[in-house]
Computed example of a mutant assay.
Amino acid sequence: MTTIRPPAPEWAPPAYAPAPRRRRSALPLAVAIVGLIASAALVVGIVALSQGPATPTTGPSAPAFTQDQIAAAKADLCSTWSLASAAIKVETNHSNDPALARVALTNSASMMEAAVADHPALTRDDRDTALAVARASRRVAAISSTAAVGTPDFNAAIDAGNSASNAMQSRCAG
């Protein structure tokens, strides 16, 4: 015999659980914010265009120096070169102490850099020549610590130093 059972009741969430809420879309709010930002940018752009450029876009002009200022700067640079080159000659040719030669080269480089920094009235050629001497002097000092006398690196550094020194001497003689 078959027994007929009553239908099972439908499932319902427990009474204590809140009913699920339908979530609102954030899209309208995002569209409104983007619209406000775009409008503000448009207003700022229109105002900026209507005012024109604030200042002319020219670079800073180099200060003008008198011929006396240029000549005085060069005379001081050449005086510094005379002292620096004398120190290099004494310590590299008449001293048996390589450390003193390196000190003379390094100090001379610093003296030339300071002379350039102290005299903005120097011409570009005078400035470039003095800085080339400083770089060459520092290179000779460094190479003499790492390369033996007579090696290609040592000879190249000495040749570059002599070339820079000759160029500086020519600038100061003329």
Rank of each mutant, 00 (worst) to 15 (best):
P63K: 12
A101N: 02
K74A: 00
L83H: 09
S108T: 14
V43L: 13
N166L: 11
D97T: 09
E10T: 10
A48S: 09
A115P: 01
A40P: 09
A160Q: 15
A86P: 04
A87Y: 10
G161N: 08
P28K: 01
N96W: 13
D128W: 05
V116F: 06
A64P: 02
E113T: 06
A142D: 15
P7E: 03
E91Y: 09
D125Y: 05
A109P: 08
D68H: 06
L36D: 07
P120E: 01
S61W: 03
A38G: 14
R102A: 12
R138K: 14
L105W: 06
A8R: 11
D97K: 03
P20N: 02
D159A: 15
A72V: 00
L29Y: 09
A121P: 00
E113F: 00
L100E: 04
N93W: 08
F65D: 02
A132E: 08
A71T: 04
S50P: 09
Q67G: 02
A54N: 13
T66A: 02
A41E: 07
P20V: 01
N166R: 14
A64H: 10
A17Y: 09
A8K: 11
G52C: 04
A15L: 07
Q67E: 01
D68K: 01
P14G: 14
R135T: 14
V116L: 00
L27H: 10
E10S: 15
H119C: 02
S50M: 13
N96M: 06
R124C: 00
N107L: 15
S39P: 05
R124A: 14
C172I: 00
A147K: 13
P60G: 15
S82M: 05
A136R: 11
A173S: 14
A141Q: 03
S108N: 07
D97C: 03
A141K: 07
R23V: 04
P98D: 06
D126S: 12
V149G: 05
A38T: 14
C78T: 03
A156R: 14
R22L: 14
P9W: 04
A134F: 03
I4Q: 07
P120L: 04
R127E: 15
R22H: 12
S61F: 03
L100G: 08
P13F: 11
S95T: 11
D153Q: 12
T129W: 03
R124G: 06
N93Q: 12
A75V: 01
A115Q: 02
I33S: 12
M1D: 04
Q169A: 04
S108P: 12
L36C: 13
M1K: 08
M111D: 15
A142M: 13
M111A: 15
T92E: 08
P152G: 10
A17G: 05
S95Y: 05
A15Q: 13
C78L: 00
D153I: 07
R138D: 08
R139H: 09
R124T: 10
H119A: 06
P53L: 09
R22F: 10
T2M: 03
A86L: 14
L83E: 13
L100R: 09
S145T: 15
